[in-house]
Amino acid sequence: MELVTGEQFVKALALLAAGIAMGFGAVGPGIGEGFVGGKACEAIGKRPDEQALITKTMIIGQAISETTGIYALVVALILIFVVGG
C-alpha cells in the first residue's frame, strides 16, 4: 500500500465517523419509538374504539421521535459526500 497523504487520512476518518454517527444515532430513536409504539398498543388494548385516533397519534409521535435519527442520517451523508467525497 502506498504512503498515506493528509487528505486521504481526513477522508478515511470522515467515512469512519459517518458510520459511527449513523450507528449511535440510530440507538436512541429506535428505543424511543419503541416506547411510543408500545404505549399505543397498551392504549388500544384498553380502548379499542379509539384505534384510529391512537394509531394516528402513534405515527406522529414516532415520526417526531425519529427526527434525531434523520439528523444522524443527514450528518452521515454530509460526512460521506461532502467531506469524504
Partner: peptide, 9 residues
C-alpha cells in the same frame, strides 16, 4: 428544509 428531508427520507 427539515420537513423536506423527512419527506424524502
Amino acid at each position: 428544509y427539515l420537513n423536506v428531508i423527512s419527506e424524502v427520507s
